[in-house]
Design a protein around this nucleic acid. Structure first.
Lengths: 111, 111
DNA sequence: TCCCGTAGTTCAGAGATTATGAACTATTGA
DNA sequence: TCAATAGTTCATAATCTCTGAACTACGGGA
């Protein structure tokens, strides 16, 4: 299997981040990963907010987050451990991720 | 001509905003409109950062920003005046737009 | 060692989005 | 009334996204 691609900090773009997080499933996943500082396996998100997500789709979503520079994925035995790259991103674009996550929470609360 | 559609504040979503601003042309346009508190006509953006943009494409970009709730467009004579809806959006998602615009500026400076 | 189960990736086709030229609408001014 | 300007709409081509099916990779028995 190809090694997973992670962009260097220099290749992370605002547009890339916004695009990755402009999908309801992906923000939900990312918000969860970023929230707890723990690592998470992909299967943990097989259902996001009442919706069942096929695993091929899930895999693409993780790829999108990974290639936007938002998460780091490392194989650990049979599963994948995903951790957020918040600290790095925050160094490059201070305040961006917290603002997005906060907005996402506000919105979730209202409905 | 159909009257232009503007979503009410309640219908503005984080995903919609992020998606609208995940396009380099659109962030550039929006950042400019949001920056000066003045109104701007569409043609003012016929070229964005060295690239010529066909007017049909431009029209779609403005539509995208409008329907995401980011700008308000009002016909004024033969042209269209576009103003940002920052204040409204900021009331709903405090800090989101400033963070995105700041990040966009940081990125522009670096290249 | 060989086979099975689990976790995820890759591929290909269907479906949804986006970009753009051409034709159209609306408004102003001569 | 006619032409010019500013933008929209439409049709189509190009691009992106979703998803089932087939595949890879690892770990744990028997």
């Amino acid at each position: 299997m190809k090694p997973l691609f992670h962009p260097g900090a220099d290749d992370i773009t605002v547009e890339g981040i916004l695009h990755a997080l402009s999908d309801p499933v992906r923000v939900a996943i990312f918000a969860h990963i970023a929230d707890s500082d723990d690592s998470h396996k992909c299967v943990a998100f097989a259902t996001v907010g009442e919706k069942d997500i096929p695993k091929s789709t899930l895999s693409q979503h993780f790829k999108a987050l990974r290639e936007a520079g938002l998460i780091r994925s490392e194989r650990q035995g049979v599963e994948m451990r995903n951790t957020s790259r918040c600290t790095e991103v925050n160094k490059k674009f201070p305040g961006l991720l917290p603002a997005i996550i906060a907005a996402h929470k506000t919105q979730k609360k209202k409905k």
